[in-house]
Simulated assay, not measured.
Amino acid sequence: MHIGTAQAVQDRRAATVDAFRMVNPQRFTCRPRLPELPAAAWINKPDQEGGPPSEESAA
């Protein structure tokens, strides 16, 4: 998440899954794996130089 809370959210998800699994062991044959957190997520990824996109590349 863009505000730095991704790991905290992932930890809460893991705790919720673990609690559900303890209450309902018959529903799980193995421990569920949560998806890994991405290293970076972009809506508009900057170009390789790191500057804002130029008007030529936007056209």
Rank of each mutant, 00 (worst) to 15 (best):
A58E: 15
P38D: 05
P32E: 05
D18W: 05
F20E: 08
R31P: 00
R33G: 02
R21G: 02
I3Y: 11
R12C: 11
L34M: 01
Q10I: 03
P25E: 05
E49D: 14
R33F: 06
A8W: 06
P46V: 01
N24A: 08
V17H: 00
A15P: 04
A40K: 12
Q48K: 09
Q10R: 15
Q26A: 15
N44I: 05
A40T: 06
T5F: 02
R12M: 14
A39V: 09
V9F: 00
T16E: 07
Q26H: 10
K45M: 09
M1K: 05
I43F: 10
N24T: 11
Q48I: 14
R12P: 04
V23N: 07
N24P: 03
P46Q: 00
W42G: 03
A14D: 14
L34E: 04
G4L: 03
D11T: 12
R13S: 12
T16M: 10
A58L: 15
R21D: 02
R13N: 08
A39Q: 10
V23C: 00
V23T: 09
R21Q: 08
I43L: 15
M22R: 14
R27K: 12
M22N: 11
P38R: 03
L37I: 06
A41W: 10
D18K: 14
V23F: 04
D47Y: 07
Q7N: 09
T29H: 07
G4F: 03
D11P: 00
D18P: 05
I3C: 10
E49T: 11
K45G: 03
E49F: 12
A14E: 13
D11F: 04
P35N: 04
A15G: 06
R13F: 05
P32W: 04
Q26D: 12
G4E: 03
T5Q: 13
A59L: 13
G51D: 07
Q7Y: 05
F28A: 00
Q10V: 03
A41M: 09
E55K: 10
T29D: 09
A58Y: 09
V9I: 08
K45I: 03
A58W: 10
A14W: 04
S57A: 12
P46A: 03
R21K: 08
E49Y: 12
P38K: 05
A8D: 13
A14R: 15
A39K: 09
E55Q: 12
E36A: 13
P25W: 04
S57V: 14
P52L: 15
V17A: 03
I43H: 07
G4Q: 01
A41E: 09
P25K: 00
R21S: 07
P25G: 02
H2A: 11
L37R: 02
V23L: 09
R33T: 07
Q48F: 15
R12N: 13
D47C: 08
H2R: 11
L34P: 01
E55R: 10
Q26V: 10
T5A: 12
D47T: 11
G51V: 06
W42F: 13
H2S: 13
M22G: 12
A40W: 06
A19Q: 08
A15I: 05
R12G: 07
G4P: 01
T5G: 10
P53T: 04
D18Q: 13
A59W: 08
E36I: 05
L37G: 00
D11H: 06
A59M: 13
P32R: 02
R13Q: 14
F28P: 01
M22K: 14
S57P: 03
T16K: 08
A14P: 01
F20T: 09
P35S: 02
E55A: 15
S57E: 15
